[in-house]
Design a protein around this nucleic acid. Sequence first.
DNA 1: GTTATTTTTGAACATCGTTCAAATGACGTG
DNA 2: CACGTCATTTGAACGATGTTCAAAAATAAC
Lengths: 205, 205
Amino acid sequence: MDEARTADRKADLRNRLIDAAEAEMAEKGLAGLKARDVTQRAGCALGALYNAVADLDELVMRVNSRTLARLGIALAPAGDATTPEAVTLALADAYVVFALQNRRLWSALFEHRLPEGVPIPDWHQQEHEVLIARIGAPLIALRPDLPVDVLRLRVRTLFGAVHGVVHLALQGRLVGLPEAALRQEVAALVTALVVGARQAGTGGR
Amino acid sequence: MDEARTADRKADLRNRLIDAAEAEMAEKGLAGLKARDVTQRAGCALGALYNAVADLDELVMRVNSRTLARLGIALAPAGDATTPEAVTLALADAYVVFALQNRRLWSALFEHRLPEGVPIPDWHQQEHEVLIARIGAPLIALRPDLPVDVLRLRVRTLFGAVHGVVHLALQGRLVGLPEAALRQEVAALVTALVVGARQAGTGGR
DNA sequence: GTTATTTTTGAACATCGTTCAAATGACGTG
DNA sequence: CACGTCATTTGAACGATGTTCAAAAATAAC
């Protein structure tokens, strides 16, 4: 009759393992994540990891899931801005600040690769899409005339552009690059794209 | 007195190893590169690899060096365009086409990470910078009034933006995304940025 | 309290990158 | 050609790592 108790203990160990993996990744980066270090930190045996999780890839995705959730929270205040342009700019700026303050965990979101041919599980794929939808919401308000699939592509482009700039900035020895400069660059990028979205016609070109 | 002969044989084995590594990476991706597979493909013993190269990281950088060179060749025809805007657009389009036609090798350019704290060797770092300088040349012609360091940052931003869009497109299950759509998106992105460069003032904001 | 089921354990395995002493081959000299 | 010296090549061995699984321990059920 203690089946609830045992299920909880199982979930507890799982959470401890994800906690430990998150801490390891925050300290040493995605490549520094080792099964033995994680289990030692979580206070359990090596094999216990494979009881709570299919493999290390799933463990990384669980950590990434948390990072996406925290990123979502960090993005929330941007909604207070008044115009769609201002909201988009605030979103991008909050995104950059989050990436800078959570370098290794943010990098893991995009560095992690599953073995070729293995698709990302739906539960995780959707978390990414929720984020992109959130970022794209003000843009959709800006161009209610465009078809949704065109808008989806435009949002992905905006997201990808910001992602690329931050990605390059974090990986190059841009340790010298001051945070303020990166934020300005991204702001200029987003401004150009949002202004472009206002001007350009429906299609590409 | 055959010291030239032996030096040539040494270089030959080195090139065979880089050839083999390039083929392996093109077939299986960066994560699929294994020392044993490379040496077997090159027709030598396992240990011979560490005679020709310090470690697998250097081997990857040698392959990346070739990829950058081929990318440079693929970008050359873009110089035929007449206006700076057209040159930039042609460069971006050629870049996208190259990435799509060399997915795994192009991805390896950005997926490869050295152990934390180990800097990228100068000879390889400069190859990246040469590429960025090439891409940025027409933009510099477009804004001769801006200081060089501001322009360098702007070019990095444009490069990063295009990089990010292509990167996301290649890693998501964007297998469904047709090539033409990606090229259009990148063209729209570059147009917005180049137009923005014409309009915006010197600084950020 | 005893048995059945589940969970946890960590030794063992397979697969890596990397090293290094021994074997092999090349080169110069008598 | 013969011999000695040096460089190169080899592949067995090592350590690290992800993963498995039979045994042990813990828990649930009666």
